[in-house]
C-alpha cells in the first residue's frame, strides 16, 4: 500500500513536468485530467477504506475526470486554438524552473515536523504542484492555458488536503468540487467572450483598462 501511495505521488510530480513542457492545449488538458483522477484514487490507498472515502473518490473522478475535460475541450473548440505558440517563458526554461520548485518544496518538506511515514512525500508534492500551477498561470499567454494552470494549482491544494485526511465531511468536499466545476464553466464563457471581442485569447494583450490611459496611448 505504501508503495502505491508513493507511486501515485511520483506520477503527480511527473505530470507537473509534462505540464511545464507541453505546448499542445489538448495535451495539457489530458495531463490535468490525469492529475484529477490520481487525486481521486489517492484516498483509496490510505489504509482503511470508509464509505465517505469511496464517495469522495467517486465525486472527484467524475467531476475532475469527466466534466472538466468536457468543458475545457468545448472552450478550446469555440476559441479555435490548439497550441500555446510563444509562451512568455520558454519550455526548456519552464522545465528548469519547475525542477527548482521541486527542490525547494522537498527542502521545505525536510523542515516540517515528522509525520506518518506513508505521507512523507505528500506535502512536498502538493507544494510543488501548487507552485507549478501558479507558474503556468504567470508564464503562459493564452487564457485557456491560464485556466489549466489554475486547475493544477487547485489540484495541488486538494492533494495537500487529501494527504492529511482532513475530515470536512462530504458536503464541503462536494462544495469545493462544485466551485471548481462552475469556475471552469464561467472561465469557458469568459474565453468565448474574449475571443469574440478581441479575436484572440492572448491575455497579455488585454491592457485596455488602467489608471493612466493617456500615457498608455
Amino acid at each position: 500500500m505504501e508503495h502505491l501511495i508513493d507511486f501515485i505521488l511520483a506520477l503527480f510530480l511527473i505530470t507537473n513536468l509534462m505540464m511545464a513542457a507541453s505546448s499542445r492545449l489538448m495535451h495539457c488538458i489530458k495531463i490535468v485530467v490525469l492529475q484529477g483522477i490520481l487525486l481521486g484514487l489517492l484516498p483509496l490507498f490510505l489504509g482503511h477504506i470508509e464509505a465517505s472515502h469511496l464517495i469522495a473518490a467517486l465525486l472527484n473522478i467524475s467531476i475532475k475526470g469527466i466534466a472538466l475535460p468536457y468543458l475545457l475541450v468545448a472552450a478550446i473548440k469555440r476559441a479555435d486554438v490548439c497550441r500555446e505558440l510563444e509562451p512568455l517563458v520558454g519550455y526548456s526554461t519552464s522545465l528548469i524552473i519547475v525542477l527548482l520548485f521541486f527542490a525547494v518544496s522537498f527542502w521545505l518538506g525536510t523542515k516540517l515536523p515528522a509525520e506518518e511515514p506513508h505521507l512523507r512525500l505528500a506535502t512536498p508534492t502538493a507544494v510543488a504542484t501548487m507552485l507549478t500551477g501558479l507558474f503556468i498561470v504567470m508564464a503562459r499567454r493564452k487564457a485557456i492555458t491560464q485556466a489549466i494552470g489554475f486547475l493544477t494549482f487547485e489540484n495541488g491544494i486538494s492533494l495537500f488536503g487529501t494527504g492529511r485526511m482532513l475530515d470536512f465531511g462530504v458536503a464541503i468536499e462536494l462544495g469545493i468540487l462544485l466551485d471548481v466545476l462552475v469556475l471552469v464553466f464561467v472561465m469557458g464563457i469568459a474565453v468565448m467572450r474574449i475571443k469574440r471581442e478581441f479575436q484572440h485569447i492572448d491575455s497579455d494583450k488585454l491592457h485596455f483598462l488602467g489608471d493612466n490611459q493617456k500615457e498608455a496611448e
Binding site: 498561470v137 487564457a143 485556466a147 469545493i176 474574449i194 488585454l206 485596455f208
Partner: peptide, 27 residues
C-alpha cells in the same frame, strides 16, 4: 464591451487564485 470582458477575465483569474491561497490556509 471589450473593457468589461477584460475586467471579467482579470477578476475571475486573480480572485480565484487568491481565494485558492485561502483554501490552502483553511487546510
Amino acid at each position: 464591451s471589450a473593457g468589461s470582458t477584460e475586467a471579467m477575465w482579470k477578476y475571475l483569474l486573480i480572485c480565484s487564485v487568491g481565494i485558492g491561497l485561502a483554501l490552502f490556509g483553511t487546510f
